[in-house]
Design a binder for these strands. Structure first.
Length: 813
DNA sequence: CATTCCCGCCACCGG
DNA sequence: CCGGTGGCGGGAATG
C-alpha cells in the first residue's frame, strides 16, 4: 500500500535533514509529520546508524530514476523514498534505536529505568515489538523486569557473567554433542540420498536437558523479585539457548536450522514438524536480530553443499571457561572492554566513533557515508554471492600502518581509523563499526560442515592446528606471514563440497582487489578441489584417508576439523591416489603454498574482541565473508600447517619445501602439550633470521616488505607465481606494493582458519609460548610490539605476520 | 521460488 | 475482569 508517495518523499527529505528526527516517520500515520523527538543524545547516533546501516544503504538502489550518477552522498541518501520499507521497521534497527537510548555500561549512579510504553511511543512502534527486544535483553540480563511496564537497564555489565553462566549450562546440556549429532544426521541425509543408511545413532544423545528454565544470575534474580514471573517461556529461554549454542560450539557459528532443531528440543528424529520448525526459525530470526544489534553475533552464510544456509557467528566477547574469581571475570573480559566500561557511558556509541572530527559533521560527511555504504555493499555482495570467493583486501591493514596517508583509499582503513580513535568496542552499536568488527580476522575461515565425518574421535588435531597459527607462505618475495589463529569462534572451515568447490573457486570475486588473487587460487585449487573433492568426499571418509596417510588418528570431527580433514584428505588423496592429472594440479597447488610459518596461536579464549577490533578495522568486513567463501584457500593452508604439525610426511610439502619456521618450532611444543604430540621435533632448522624478522615486523619495527632476505622458503613457488602473474596482471601500483598486497591477500586467503576444538585449559601453554616468542624481540614482557592493539594491524606489513590481537591482549594482562 | 521476518490476532496471566 | 505480555503463524517484502 502506498508504495511510493510523493508526500512521503517530502517527509522523508525533511526527516533526513533533521539531525535527529527519526528518519523514519511513521509510515502508517502521515499525520504526525515529523515528530521532533527529544532525542538529544542519541539522535546523532541514529543518524549514523541509519546512514551506516546496511539496510538503508543500498536501499533499493535508491531511485534509479533519479540517477545521481555521481556523488550522491547525502543526496543519494536523502531521498530514500522508501519509507515503508520493511527494513526500516526491522527489529534490528529498532533494537539499535533502543540500545542507543541507554549506555552500554551505565554507572551505578544513573539508574536507568525503562518504561515500555514510553519507549514504544518514542520509537514509534507497537509495544509488541518492544517486548521482543526486551525479552532477549532480559535473557542476557541486560535488563530486568521490575514491574509492570517497567524494566531496569543494566547494560552490558552482566554480560560476562551471563555468558559464562550460559556457557556452563550449555556445556552441561551437551549441546556440543547435540549439534554434532544433528549435523551428522544432516550429512548422512545428504550423502545417502536414499536416506536410510543404517544410521549409527539415530537417536540423539539424550539430552534430557529438557527445558531448563531461565538461567539466572546470582546477583540478578532478586531484582525482579516480586514481579518476576517464572516460567519464562520461549523467547527468553530460546534466546539463552541460542547463545549457549554459540558458546559451546567450536567454530562459534551456528546455523539456523541446527539451532532450531536443538531448540525445538526434539531430537527425536525426524518428526520435524514442519510448521513448528518454521515457527522456530521465525523466532530465531527475531532473536538473532537483537543479538546482532548487540554485536554479539553476525550473520554469515555457510556454504554448504546444496547452497548456502543461513547461520550466525558469534562475535561477542569470548567467555572464559573457568570462572574463577569475579575479578577475573571482569578484567578478563578483554582489556578493551574493560576499558570501555570505564569510559563515559554517555556518549558511547556514535560519538566515540569519530572523536576527532565533529561528530555530527563526521557523521554526515559524505565521504564517510559513502565509504560505509561501499563497504556494506561489498560485504553484502560477498555474502550474497553464493560461493563468493575470497576477497578481502588484506592489504588494508598493512597499508594503514605503513602508509597512513593512504587510508583514504581504502574504506576499510578509514573505518579502521575511525574505530581506532574511539574505543572500539563501544561504538559497536553503530553499524559502521560493525563491518569493521567483522573483519577482524585476517584469516579466511573455512566453514565447517561437520557432518561428514561423523566420526567420533574428538579432534585434537584440530585443536592443534588451531593452536598453531598457520602461516601461509607468502609468495615470492613476501616474507612469511603469521596468522594468528583466530580464536575458537572466529574462523571456521568451509565445506568443500565438490560441487561447491568448483563454483567457489571459479567465481570471480566481487571485489576487484581480491579478484586477482582469487582467480589464482581458484586455478590452482580448482582442479583438485573439484574433482577430488567430489570423489573423495563423497566417497570416503576423509578421516580415513587422512589416517592412512599418516594423519594422526585422533582427528576429531569437529566441524572445522572436518573441513580440514576433508581438504587435507582431498589433497592427499589426490596426490596419492589420483596421481594422474590431479597430481599435477596438486603439485601446482602445493607449489602454491610453499612454506608457511606456524605460529602457535594460543587459543586463548580470553582474547577479547577488543583486541580484534584492531584487526577488524584493518580488515574490512568483506574479508571475513570472503574467507568463508573461499574454502579452497583455507584448505590449503590448513593442510600445510596440519601436516607440519602432525609430522605428516609431507610429500606434499616436500615439493614446497616447507620449512618449519621459528614459529613452527614454537608451535611444536605447544602442540605436544595440547594434545597430539605427534610431531614436535620434526621441525627442521629454522633460520633465526627469519624469526627475527618475524618478530621485528611484527612489532612494527621493520616494515614487512623489508625483511625479505630471511625467508628462503618463499622462494619457490613457481606455479603459483605464474598464476599470480597471470591473474593479477592488470594495473599495479608499485610493483612492490602490489606484490605485497597480493601476498597478503594470499596469506589471508590461505590462512584458513583452523577450527578450534574446545580445549579449554590447554590453551595457556600455547599462549605462554607465543607471548614469549613475541616478546623476545621487544624485550621483556611489556608489550612493546603491538602495544596498543591499534597498531597491531598497522604494524603488520605485507610480509609481516599478523599477530593475533588476543595474544597481545593476553600478554598485556 | 526461497529467505527473512513484520504484523498483529488473541491466549494468558498477573494484579 | 482488565490490560499488559508475548506465543504464534500468515503472508508481505526481499533476495
Amino acid at each position: 500500500k502506498t508504495p511510493l508517495k510523493q508526500p512521503a518523499t517530502s517527509n522523508s527529505a525533511l526527516t533526513e535533514i533533521q539531525p535527529d528526527g527519526q528518519p523514519l516517520t511513521t509510515p502508517t500515520k502521515p499525520k504526525e509529520g515529523l515528530p521532533a523527538e527529544p532525542w538529544t543524545p542519541t539522535s546523532n547516533l541514529k543518524m549514523l546508524i541509519s546512514a551506516a546501516s546496511p539496510e538503508i544503504r543500498s536501499r533499493e538502489q535508491r531511485r534509479q530514476l533519479l540517477n545521481d550518477p555521481s556523488e550522491e552522498h547525502l543526496l543519494g541518501e536523502e531521498y530514500e523514498k522508501s519509507h515503508p520499507s520493511r527494513k526500516e521497521k526491522s527489529l534490528g534497527l529498532l533494537c539499535h534505536k533502543f540500545l542507543a537510548r541507554y549506555p552500554d555500561y551505565p554507572s551505578s549512579t544513573d539508574n536507568s529505568y525503562i518504561s515500555l510504553d514510553e519507549v514504544a511511543e518514542e520509537l514509534k512502534v507497537e509495544r509488541r515489538r518492544i517486548y521482543d527486544i526486551v525479552n532477549v535483553l532480559e535473557s542476557l540480563h541486560m535488563v530486568s523486569r521490575l514491574a509492570k511496564n517497567r524494566y531496569a537497564w543494566h547494560g552490558r555489565h552482566n554480560l560476562p557473567k551471563t555468558l559464562q553462566a550460559l556457557k556452563k549450562v550449555g556445556e552441561n546440556n551437551k549441546y556440543t554433542q547435540q549439534i554434532q549429532l544433528i549435523k551428522r544426521r544432516e550429512y548422512e541425509h545428504e550423502f545417502d540420498l536414499d536416506g536410510d543408511r543404517k544410521e549409527g545413532m539415530p537417536k540423539s544423545i539424550a539430552s534430557k536437558d529438557s527445558e531448563m528454565s531461565f538461567v539466572e544470575l546470582p546477583g540478578m534474580e532478586f531484582r525482579a523479585a516480586s514481579v518476576n514471573s517464572r516460567k519464562d517461556k520461549s523467547l527468553r529461554v530460546m534466546s539463552q539457548k541460542f547463545v549457549m549454542l554459540f558458546l559451546v560450539s567450536t567454530p562459534q557459528i551456528v546455523s539456523l536450522d541446527v539451532a532450531a532443531k536443538i531448540l525445538i528440543g526434539e531430537e527425536q528424529l525426524e518428526d520435524l514438524d514442519k510448521s513448528k520448525f518454521k515457527t522456530k526459525i521465525r523466532r530465531l530470526y527475531d532473536i538473532a536480530n537483537v543479538l546482532s544489534s548487540l554485536q554479539l553475533i553476525k550473520k554469515v552464510h555457510l556454504t554448504e553443499e546444496r547452497g548456502r544456509k543461513p547461520a550466525f557467528e558469534w562475535i561477542g566477547p569470548d567467555v572464559l571457561p573457568n570462572t574463577q574469581d569475579t575479578k577475573l571475570e571482569t578484567s578478563s573480559t578483554t582489556c578493551s572492554q574493560a576499558i570501555s566500561e570505564y569510559i563515559p557511558p554517555k556518549e558511547q556509541c556514535s560519538k566515540n566513533l569519530f572523536p576527532s572530527r565533529g561528530k555530527q559533521s563526521f557523521t554526515r560527511h559524505p565521504s564517510l557515508i559513502k565509504l560505509v555504504k561501499t563497504i556494506e555493499n561489498d560485504r553484502r555482495k560477498i555474502q550474497s554471492a553464493p560461493t563468493s570467493p575470497v576477497k578481502r583486501s588484506a592489504s588494508t591493514d598493512q597499508n594503514l600502518s605503513a602508509f597512513p596517508s593512504e587510508m583514504a583509499q581504502d574504506p576499510a582503513i578509514a573505518k579502521h581509523q575511525l574505530e581506532g580513535q574511539s574505543k572500539k568496542e563501544k561504538e559497536n552499536k553503530m553499524k559502521l563499526s560493525r563491518p569493521a568488527s567483522k573483519s577482524h580476522l585476517p584469516l579466511p575461515e573455512v566453514a565447517p560442515k561437520p557432518e561428514p565425518l561423523g566420526s567420533t574421535a574428538p579432534c585434537q588435531l584440530a585443536a592443534l592446528t588451531q593452536t598453531l597459527g598457520v602461516c601461509a607462505p607468502g609468495h615470492t618475495s613476501v616474507s612469511p606471514v603469521i596468522l594468528p589463529h583466530p580464536h575458537p569462534g572466529v574462523s571456521y572451515a568451509i565445506y568443500l563440497q565438490p560441487s561447491q568447490a568448483h563454483s567457489v573457486v571459479l567465481q570471480p570475486l566481487p571485489c576487484a582487489n581480491v579478484t586477482g588473487i582469487k582467480s589464482v587460487n581458484s586455478k590452482v585449487l580448482n582442479p583438485i578441489t573439484t574433482e577430488e573433492g567430489d570423489n573423495q568426499i563423497a566417497t570416503d571418509d576423509p578421516t580415513k584417508s587422512v589416517t592412512a596417510k599418516e594423519r594422526p588418528p585422533t582427528t576429531s570431527e569437529t566441524s572445522p576439523q572436518r573441513c580440514l580433514k576433508r581438504s587435507q584428505a582431498l589433497e592427499e588423496i589426490s596426490s596419492i591416489k589420483r596421481r594422474r592429472r590431479d597430481a599435477e594440479s596438486l603439485d601446482t597447488h602445493l607449489t602454491f603454498f610453499p612454506s608457511g610459518y606456524l605460529i602457535p596461536l594460543t587459543q586463548c579464549s580470553h582474547g577479547s574482541k577488543a583486541g580484534f577490533s584492531d584487526k577488524e578495522k584493518a580488515e574490512v568486513c568483506p574479508a571475513q565473508h570472503t574467507a568463508y567463501s573461499s574454502p579452497i584457500t583455507g584448505v590449503i593452508p590448513v593442510t600445510g600447517s596440519e601436516l607440519k604439525a602432525v609430522n605428516i610426511p609431507a610429500f606434499h610439502i616436500t615439493p614446497l619445501n616447507i620449512m618449519l619456521s621459528p614459529t613452527s618450532i614454537a608451535a611444536a611444543p605447544v602442540l605436544g602439550n595440547s594434545s597430539l604430540n605427534s610431531s614436535n621435533t620434526s621441525s627442521p632448522q629454522i633460520p633465526a633470521s627469519s624469526v627475527l624478522n618475524f618478530t621485528l615486523q611484527h612489532i612494527g619495527l621493520i616494515p614487512a616488505g623489508v625483511q625479505v632476505p630471511a625467508n628462503p622458503f618463499l622462494q619457490h613457488m613457481p606455479a603459483s607465481s605464474q598464476a599470480e602473474n597471470v591473474t593479477y596482471s592488470s594495473e599495479k601500483m608499485s610493483v612492490q606494493e602490489e606484490k605485497v598486497r597480493k601476498n597478503r591477500l594470499h596469506l589471508a586467503d590461505n590462512f584458513l582458519s583452523c577450527p578450534q576444538p574446545p580445549v579449554p585449559k590447554e590453551a595457556q601453554e600455547p599462549q605462554t609460548v607465543t607471548e614469549n616468542f613475541f616478546r623476545t624481540p621487544g624485550g621483556p614482557n611489556t608489550e612493546p610490539p603491538l602495544s596498543a592493539k591499534s597498531d597491531g594491524t598497522a604494524g603488520t606489513s605485507p610480509g609481516t605476520l599478523y599477530i593475533p590481537q588476543r595474544k597481545l591482549e593476553v600478554s598485556e594482562d
